[in-house]
Simulated scan of single mutants.
Amino acid sequence: MSDVSETKTVDDIAAKTDGVPAAELTPTEGAPSEMSESVDESDARTPSQLEEEGDIAADYIEELLDIADLDGDIDIDARGGRAYLSVNSSEGTSNLGLLAKPDTVNALQELTRIAVQTKTGIFSRLILDVGGSREARAAELSVLVDTAIERLEAGAESAALPAMSSYERKLVHDVVSERGFVSESEGEGRDRHTVVTRR
């Protein structure tokens, strides 16, 4: 049985932008906590607000791709009360894979959120996917949950997963619930993680 490997969060990757810590670029007063796994009603966006977020984010990513001379098609969607941006390429020879590494996607997502917030004045919870990296990560998270459940079935009272972003923790909670077990988030800040237990 393999140990659950530790992953980096968005704050680890995009700790600074132009010399300013990312935490200082987002207003704390009235901003929803990144520690919450779901979008609460007070933070709910209207379809038009999600569309605006998606359009701003798409413009930002398109400029970045042009500067980096990378090819990619951008699709905008809304999932779970968040704007969801997918960057893909139909060309098999595309160099988009250079941006598809999980750490890179997380950093780009944080920068894109800041770009959206700068234009809207509202904290953004948009999700960025590059080259199917989010689907690949979701599959990895499913394996982590399976490993945790194996520990419980072997007699452990609980199994802790590594720290991860609120979005990833939400995915983990959904998978754990589907498997018939219980999970909750523990810890603060970058150490916030999910603990899996029996019902």
Score class of each variant (00 low, 15 high):
53 E>K: 08
53 E>N: 04
53 E>W: 05
55 D>L: 13
55 D>G: 10
55 D>H: 09
56 I>T: 12
56 I>F: 07
56 I>A: 11
56 I>K: 01
57 A>N: 03
57 A>E: 02
57 A>P: 03
57 A>I: 03
57 A>C: 07
57 A>G: 15
58 A>D: 02
58 A>S: 10
58 A>K: 04
59 D>T: 13
59 D>G: 13
60 Y>G: 10
60 Y>K: 12
60 Y>W: 15
61 I>N: 01
62 E>F: 05
62 E>K: 13
62 E>I: 03
63 E>Q: 10
63 E>F: 00
63 E>I: 02
64 L>S: 13
64 L>Q: 03
65 L>M: 05
65 L>I: 06
65 L>Y: 05
65 L>S: 04
65 L>K: 01
66 D>F: 04
66 D>K: 07
66 D>Q: 11
66 D>A: 12
67 I>C: 09
67 I>F: 14
67 I>D: 13
67 I>L: 14
68 A>Y: 10
68 A>T: 10
68 A>D: 07
69 D>Q: 13
69 D>K: 14
70 L>T: 01
71 D>Y: 14
71 D>P: 10
71 D>H: 15
71 D>C: 12
72 G>P: 01
72 G>C: 04
72 G>K: 01
73 D>I: 08
73 D>A: 14
73 D>T: 14
73 D>L: 09
74 I>L: 09
74 I>Q: 05
75 D>T: 15
76 I>N: 04
78 A>K: 03
80 G>K: 05
80 G>P: 02
81 G>P: 06
81 G>E: 11
82 R>S: 08
82 R>L: 10
83 A>N: 13
83 A>Q: 11
83 A>P: 11
83 A>K: 07
83 A>I: 12
83 A>S: 15
84 Y>K: 06
84 Y>R: 06
85 L>H: 04
85 L>G: 00
85 L>S: 06
85 L>R: 00
85 L>A: 07
